[in-house]
């Protein structure tokens, strides 16, 4: 497998009137060509911020990228650092090389522009297509994402579609210019469950067909299990565990991941057994982290957890965890 994206030591702070919000603290991960990486975590853990920042889509100010690199290997022979690109440089990547699917397609689509135009304007910009050619390509694409009567629907407006159909249009927008990566920011959250499954299936199909790497941001571990190759678990602005999906479900290493797994309802569970939850609240991001951010809620803390920020430790092939404690063996990890 070859890398398509490599993010290193990304640090983002929001400078607000109330103080500095430490949104991302040292985020590093790789994305392989054609794989699906799920990023899970609760609200405010930095899932969306990390991906929006790569395409300069965060409002800056207040957001500021304090440190980090994001090497993208899909634009020509040489890798480029997305964070260092200028306006015109990043415009070529946006939509052209990296597509975005947003959560609520109703508000994410322009209400007064036909959906056809919203797709074809992107292909005209990046692929240099003429009006007529862009329209033909768009109609094919609408047909491919499962919009019945695509030719007639080309001239419809977003409010004339159902929620699921709108999300299909959104997918078509993101994939219109044959990107290398598609970032899906909770695309199924606003949809009902049967439609969710259709959208997940459609994304998987298109991903195979066009060989796209997908980053799927979600807090739904059920969706993750069904589609992700690898999972990145985030907590309070930092990745706590990265592993292959099956490995993560079978063998979670970080106390937070373990807590999440225990909070899932199980088919085999006893009828009257209650779901467990993780005690406590996520930390206040206004304070600069000096130690493990999960320490307040962690049942396994020992003195070191309150003194240092844990680095990423390899605990298996493709399995990385940021924790000083080896939960399985009930002892602190040695220096690795």
């Amino acid at each position: 497998m070859t890398k398509i994206l490599s993010v290193k030591n990304l640090v983002i702070k929001f400078h607000t009137f109330d103080g500095v919000v430490h949104a991302l603290n040292n985020v590093s991960f790789d994305l392989q060509k054609g794989e699906t990486l799920a990023i899970v975590g609760e609200s405010g853990s930095g899932k969306s911020v990390s991906m929006l920042s790569l395409l300069h889509l965060l409002p800056m100010p207040p957001a500021k990228i304090e440190n980090g690199e994001a090497w993208f290997y899909g634009a020509g022979k040489e890798p480029v650092d997305l964070l260092k690109l200028n306006r015109s440089g990043i415009s070529k990547i946006r939509g052209g090389k990296i597509g975005f699917i947003f959560q609520d397609a109703l508000s994410a689509l322009n209400p007064v522009m036909t959906i056809g135009r919203q797709i074809s304007e992107s292909t005209m910009e990046h692929l240099g297509l003429s009006h007529a050619k862009a329209k033909e390509k768009t109609i094919k694409l609408l047909d491919r994402v499962g919009i019945p009567g695509a030719r007639q629907r080309y001239d419809n407006f977003p409010h004339q579609f159902s929620g699921g159909m709108r999300q299909r249009v959104m997918i078509a927008v993101s994939m219109a210019c044959n990107p290398k990566i598609v970032i899906a920011d909770e695309p199924t959250t606003a949809l009902d469950v049967t439609v969710q499954a259709q959208i997940v299936d459609l994304t998987k199909e298109l991903q195979k067909e066009f060989k796209i790497a997908v980053v799927w941001i979600t807090h739904d571990l059920g969706v993750v299990a069904g589609m992700a190759d690898r999972v990145l678990v985030m907590y309070a602005g930092a990745p706590v565990e990265i592993a292959e999906a099956q490995d993560l479900y079978a063998n979670p290493q970080h106390p937070y991941t373990i807590g999440l797994m225990n909070a899932l309802p199980s088919v085999k569970g006893h009828e009257d057994s209650r779901l467990t939850s993780i005690d406590g609240m996520p930390p206040d991001l206004m304070e600069e982290p000096h130690h493990c951010q999960f320490a307040w809620r962690c049942p396994y803390t020992f003195d070191r957890c309150w003194k240092e920020i844990p680095q990423q430790i390899m605990v298996g092939e493709n399995h990385v965890v940021s924790c000083f404690f080896d939960v399985e063996n009930r002892r602190p990890r040695g220096h690795v």
Binding site: G95, F100, A108, S122, E125
Partner: peptide, 15 residues
């Protein structure tokens, strides 16, 4: 600040 403007940016359109 509407979402659809962010979408427009995410498509790489000119300002």
């Amino acid at each position: 600040n509407e979402d659809f403007v962010r979408t427009a940016y995410s498509k790489g359109l000119a300002d």
